[in-house]
């Protein structure tokens, strides 16, 4: 690849040189690695997305698919046995055990809010946008964050942080969260360890599709036993990779505090290796920029109000 000098030839002296000096001074304050990290996650997510067949191939693919389905049906009906590899509970337990602090998993996340959900919540969540969520254990980081800006996440101490810009961030203990933000974090976030513990404890598990011998993916449906409380998950579809025990995809149906059920879909986009700072507010502001917590409540509130504006004013 070319050097920056080759890519951007020197300017002519005079006004051009002045403008170039101004642009270069601005450029010197930029951390390109941050943008590259974000683009890389997007590229990985893109690569993991299923490919839509082009129309010209559809008939051929349909015929091949039909043939494959027939063969599978024959194996299913006539074969010597259809061995169940494990029980649904064992599959979820194995996924829980594999959710260690060894690797960062990145998922694309789409969100479908019910029509009667509160407007400020939809605005804060920027609900039409597909975001990328990376997680390790119960930590997570979401980009872009609330209102489609910056990033937000939960750090290793369980604190929620919001960094709408690189200039400042706000950090909250769980008990300090404004109600609107608490709901938004619950919907956008993913604490896999806690979630799977809850599923194992309080949910009825069954196969979404009965697994065949040597199945690469195991699909489990989970439905909460008894009544679903406000903010709780009503049901989940969990697809686990047989070999790695990673969760390939996850669909959560969450009862909103106000409104009906939101559907949140996660699809595995890639495995990464981030530093711990990726999950902390400090990793998402420029060096020396403040992260305000409960010790500076007014400044923390100001960060949110300045950046998320009227949307949050209604919810705080």
């Amino acid at each position: 690849m070319s050097s920056p000098t080759d890519l951007f030839p020197p300017p002519e002296p005079g006004i051009d040189a002045i403008v170039r000096a101004q642009l270069d001074a601005e450029a010197a304050q930029v951390d390109p690695a941050r943008i590259w990290d974000r683009v890389r996650v997007q590229l990985d997510a893109e690569a993991a997305r299923p490919i839509t067949p082009r129309s010209g191939f559809r008939k051929v693919l349909f015929a091949v698919g039909a043939l494959a389905a027939s063969l599978l049906a024959a194996v299913f009906l006539l074969g010597p046995s259809r061995e169940a590899i494990a029980t649904p509970t064992q599959v979820v337990e194995s996924a829980r055990a594999a959710n260690g602090p060894d690797a960062d998993r990145c998922y694309t996340q789409t969100l479908q809010l019910p029509p009667n959900s509160p407007a400020p919540l939809a605005l804060v969540l920027d609900s039409g946008r597909t975001v990328t969520l990376c997680t390790r254990g119960d930590r997570f980081v979401v980009q872009p964050g609330f209102g489609g800006r910056g990033a937000c996440g939960r750090d290793e101490n369980g604190r929620v942080w919001i960094a709408p810009t690189r200039d400042a961030a706000a950090r909250f203990d769980e008990s300090e969260l404004p109600p609107l933000v608490r709901d938004a974090v619950r919907i956008r976030g993913l604490e896999l360890g806690t979630l799977l513990d809850e599923v194992l404890k309080d949910f009825e598990l069954s196969w979404t599709e009965p697994p065949v011998h040597n199945a690469a993916l195991l699909a489990v449906s989970a439905v909460r036993r008894g009544q679903t409380g406000p903010g709780q998950i009503r049901s989940a579809d969990i697809v686990v990779e047989h070999d790695t025990k990673r969760i390939r995809s996850l669909v959560l149906r969450r009862q909103l505090i106000v409104g009906d059920t939101a559907t949140i879909t996660f699809r595995l986009a890639g495995i990464a290796q981030f530093g711990a700072v990726a999950y902390a507010a400090e990793g998402h502001v420029d060096a020396g920029r403040p992260v305000y917590d409960g010790a500076r409540p007014l400044l923390r509130r100001k960060v949110l109000l300045q950046n998320l504006g009227d949307v949050l004013v209604n919810g705080l």
Partner: peptide
């Protein structure tokens, strides 16, 4: 390779976009 290229062009691209 892509990372190197991105890191070379991004600072000035951002300066241009910010302007």
């Amino acid at each position: 390779a892509l990372g190197d290229w991105v890191k070379s062009v991004t600072p000035r691209a951002l300066a241009y976009a910010r302007s």
